[in-house]
Structures are given as C-alpha cells and as structure tokens.
C-alpha cells in the first residue's frame, strides 16, 4: 500500500508545475480580487457591490454584455450546428480546405479582426460604399460602431471555434442510428429532434459554454470599436484599473467578480442540463 501511495505521489509530482502556475496566476489574483472588491481606502465596505447593482451605468453595462453575449452565442451556435452538419456529411479536399480555413480564422480575433471589419463595414468601409453606390440601404446605413453593429463581429468570431467543436460532436452520430430510424419511418426532422440533437446535447451545451465565456470576456474588439460609447462589463472592469481620470480598483474588482459569477452561474446551469442528457451516453 505504501508502495502504491509512493507510486501515485511520484506521478502527482509531474502536476506540481501546473499547480504552481494555477495558484500563482489564478487563485492568488482571484483571492486578491475578492478581498479588494470589499475594500475602499483600506477599510471593509459593501459599497463597491452596492454601486454595481444600483448605478445605471453598471447595470446597463451588465445588460449590454449579457445581451450581446447571449444573442451572439445562440445565433453562433445555430450557425455552427448547420455548418458542422454540412461539413460532417462532406468528404475530400473541400472539407479539408474548409477545416484549414476554420483553424486559421479561429485565431483571427481582437484588434486585427476589428480593423478588418472597419475596412469592410466601417463608416467608409468597402461594403458601405458599395451600398451607397448602388442604393442598398441596409449596407449604406450600416452602423458598425453600435451594439447591433458589433453583434455581427461577435457572431463572426463565434463561428470558427464553435464549428470546430461541433464537428467532433457530429462525428459521433452513427450512420446506423439514422438508417434504423429511417427504416422505422422517421424522417430527417424526427431523427434530429428525437435522437441526433439529444445525443449531441452535452457537446452543444459544452460549445455554448465556450462561446459564452469567449464573448462575455471579449475586450479588445469592442474597446477598439466603441470604447466607452457603449457600456460593456469587460470594458468597465479595465477602465477601473487603468482609467485616465481616477482608478477604482475596489469597484473594478467587484465588477470582475460579478462577471466571473455570471460565467460560473451560466456554466452551472448548462452543466445541470448536460447531466440530464448524459444519462443515456454510451459507456
């Protein structure tokens, strides 16, 4: 038994560097942030949280962040689902080319992505000019520097990563399930609603978690496009630490903790749903 413990201990030793990094760069800053969120000028206070939940500027930031995150994640997920479905059913060079493109675009985010969108859909963007030239109002009047305008960018950066995640879930759908259902008289819709989607649901929810966290924590893209003209939680957090006028690390920490809680609650809720769908998962 002692031998076994020693053996296990030996293996665990390889995890020490990772544990060290997690403690140093995640747990200590988190603990510091939690403490700071209850401090103001060296004294304990609940004012930071009171401000977050009472001042309209922060409530609007929360509302905007939740709206753009939820809507872009849901729309992104729907697009990812159908692109993943189409990709899983295709073969050959076209598929590998598309996968390479997805891999490439999944790393194309932040400032370069914002600049690309400004070039295409900004005030003097290519498509906006084309819209003006040919009288296409939807393009001519496109306002990228708004919440609705940014929504397109958010959906865009959700697609490559979400599709790649969804594709692996589609690979798990067996041809035999489709054929069995078909022979029993079920069409495509019946198959996907009764078998395909329920089987994929844990993966769909897992993908949703990733998209949600990806969107709510997004900073560089909205900062470059809207800066402070549209209030978002991620921008507000950074403002409190590096603000030009006054730095308020206590309030910034409280906002960051709220952002963290939103993500944790969302992951908790989706994991509850996941557990329901995982009941029948193959062992």
């Amino acid at each position: 038994m002692i031998k076994n413990i020693k053996k296990a201990g030996g293996k665990m030793a390889f995890l020490l560097p990772l544990a060290f990094i997690v403690i140093l760069f995640e747990w200590i800053p988190l603990a510091d942030m939690v403490i700071r969120s209850f401090m103001d000028g060296g004294t304990f206070t609940l004012d930071n949280y009171a401000s977050v939940f009472t001042k309209p500027v922060y409530l609007v930031a929360m509302k905007n962040s939740l709206w753009i995150t939820l809507s872009s994640s849901v729309i992104g997920l729907i697009i990812d689902f159908f692109v993943g479905m189409a990709l899983s059913g295709s073969k050959g060079k076209g598929k590998s080319l598309y996968l390479s493109l997805l891999n490439l675009t999944s790393t194309f985010s932040g400032v370069p992505l914002s600049i690309a969108f400004i070039t295409v859909l900004g005030t003097s963007g290519v498509f906006v000019l084309i819209g003006r030239q040919f009288g296409i109002d939807a393009l001519a009047n496109y306002h990228l520097y708004s919440l609705g305008g940014m929504f397109v960018i958010y959906v865009y950066f959700q697609i490559p990563m979400g599709t790649l995640l969804m594709l692996s879930a589609f690979e798990k759908i067996r041809k035999e399930w489709k054929e069995s259902a078909y022979l029993m008289g079920a069409g495509n819709i019946k198959f996907w609603t009764h078998i395909g989607i329920p089987v994929m649901m844990p993966a769909i929810l897992g993908t949703f978690n990733m998209l949600f966290a990806n969107a709510i924590a997004s900073y560089a893209t909205p900062y470059l496009l809207v800066n402070n003209s549209i209030s978002l939680l991620s921008i507000k957090v950074v403002d409190m630490f590096v603000g030009d006028v006054k730095q308020r690390p206590g309030l910034g920490s409280a906002l960051a903790i709220v952002l963290l809680v939103i993500v944790v609650v969302q992951i908790g809720l989706t994991n509850l749903c996941k557990r329901h769908f995982e009941k029948g998962a193959e062992k």
């Binding site: 399930w177 069995s180 009764h194 089987v199 769908f277 029948g280």
Partner: peptide, 8 residues
Amino acid sequence: QYSLFPNM
C-alpha cells in the same frame, strides 16, 4: 452493432 439510440 451500435444501432440502438443511446439517449433512449
């Protein structure tokens, strides 16, 4: 093999 619907 593997033709049963795993979610049911």
